[in-house]
């Protein structure tokens, strides 16, 4: 006779654990690169597009994204394509990583590595 986890049966998971990316609508090309980096590392990701007017700086977006992520890692991409990776438990003004649009792919890899627990790529 096994152990039945009645708790699991009654609670339905709405979304699978994932990194959250909050991206300004205008930065779609950069978003693709970030997502490619995360996917290559094998970590699930969820995207929330932010309309032009509401888009803040990358760090603010990243922090909000990290809080929204059940894996505690968030990526923020501002309207110019600059990116930032945050962890929900870090202070808001001390993001884990930042990068220009040219290094968006690398940022994606490293956001995922904060989840998988291996050293970041340089």
């Amino acid at each position: 006779m096994g152990v039945r986890d009645r708790g699991a049966a009654t609670t339905t998971r709405a979304v699978p654990p994932a990194i959250v990316v909050r991206c300004a609508e205008d930065a779609a090309a950069v978003l693709r690169d970030v997502l490619a980096g995360v996917e290559e590392e094998g970590v699930p990701v969820r995207v929330e597009l932010v309309p032009g007017g509401d888009a803040r700086d990358a760090a603010t977006l990243a922090f909000a994204a990290a809080r929204a992520s059940s894996l505690d890692v968030g990526v923020g991409i501002d309207r110019e394509g600059a990116g930032c990776v945050q962890h929900a438990k870090r202070p808001e003004d001390r993001p884990a990583l930042t990068g220009p649009r040219e290094r968006a792919r690398l940022l994606g890899h490293n956001a995922a590595r904060l989840v998988t627990g291996i050293p970041v790529k340089t």
């Binding site: 870090r90 001390r94 884990a96 490293n110 904060l114 291996i118 050293p119 970041v120």
Partner: peptide
Amino acid sequence: EPLPAETFAR
């Protein structure tokens, strides 16, 4: 103080 990203997992 939170560790910098270069130290993470190292």
